[in-house]
Design a protein around this nucleic acid. Structure first.
Lengths: 198, 198
DNA sequence: TTGTCAACTGACCGAATGTTCGGTAAACAC
DNA sequence: GTGTTTACCGAACATTCGGTCAGTTGACAA
């Protein structure tokens, strides 16, 4: 009847739940600042139990980063599939989609944006991340060539500032009933596209 | 006669040069991802030599964070001393000053913005950082109350997005002869205050 | 009731960590 | 020259690291 009851918890974890908890701890203390002992404590289990579910620490990182990068890659793919229209509108759409991915996969994207390239796993993630940045960069350049972006700011600089604004969301955003990803994207686009000043 | 020894430098390091190198490596690999062995290699000396100049790893972090926070505190102090005028202009000034500090003390501020609170040193730095964020937050609220900021975005959200845009500069900015801090601040303020769209 | 099996423990491993310390030699003062 | 100071080395230190492995336990099927 009752699925998992309040009985003595025997099967408490699986690879998915371990990953979810791990990413949370990684984001709190940083990947390098997190020991497998820290993870075990957060899971309510001994260190060795973790290795029953996942191959090791670096694999946890790899799986988390993959989840973030797949989300961003999907944005690129969707734009390729349905291109057309002014670049400025496609850029706006891409920014909005990015914010959505960022909010939907918040812990994973947060982890991705903190990667420094200390291992091959991290280096590979950085390379995929750069591909996404190139995608945004191309849209900005197109929009600038179209004449849709103010000409007194270097497009490369615009790309950096715009991407930075989106990325910085991970540093403070916390899911709440009041705030949807769309409202957040609206506010961000209002500021960056139309400006704060009345 | 001669100022401090310009002679053959067999004694190559002092606390200052060790700090400068250390902060560089901390930013490359992350503080927790950096071992004293890594530091020693970057300095071209053995691990133990480092302890001749500085008390330890955490003190290096503490000194670096202090350098960043003192810069930001100075911005708050200067605004207090010379307040007056519309809040929107004081906000613009504060953002410009922040960009300057960020560029002038780039490696130190970069390190500060990556702190997660893993030690008491980091927690203390986070607390001082929050004070600065409160300062910006107050300016935004004042400017909103003045009616100088578009009313369709929550001031708290504006604070977050604006601070995030400034902070994200550390993730890509590299000093170059072509780009001054003032040009960078101009571009950032154009985007966030007036908007990218023509 | 018994057998099976996934979930988990506890003891352990070698390597790496931050730090200490006794010694050494180059630079400088006299 | 001699003596002192100062930058540095090399070997160790206690601890923690990520990871292994032989078992134990409880849930469930037959």
């Amino acid at each position: 009847m009752s699925p998992p009851t309040t009985r003595r918890r025997r099967r408490a974890h699986d690879p998915e739940s371990v990953l979810a908890t791990a990413v949370g701890v990684f984001n709190e203390r940083g990947y390098d600042g997190t020991s497998m002992e820290d993870l075990a404590r957060a899971l309510g289990v001994t260190k060795s139990a973790i290795y029953h579910h996942v191959p090791g620490k670096e694999q946890l990182l790899a799986r988390a980063l993959e989840r973030a990068l797949d989300g961003l890659s999907a944005v690129v793919g969707d734009e390729r599939a349905a291109s057309g229209g002014p670049a400025i509108e496609r850029l706006e759409w891409a920014v909005r989609q990015s914010v959505h991915i960022l909010v939907d996969r918040l812990p994973y994207v947060t982890l991705l944006l903190r990667v420094r390239g200390n291992s091959r796993t991290e280096q590979a993630a950085l390379e995929r991340r750069r591909e996404f940045e190139g995608f945004i960069s191309r849209l900005v350049k197109e929009a600038a060539a179209e004449g849709s972006i103010r000409p007194d700011v270097d497009p490369a600089l615009v790309t950096r500032l715009l991407s930075g604004t989106v990325s910085s969301i991970t540093e403070w955003y916390r899911p709440a009933p009041g705030a949807s990803a769309d409202d957040l994207a609206d506010a961000l686009l209002k500021m960056t596209f139309s400006g704060l000043r009345v």
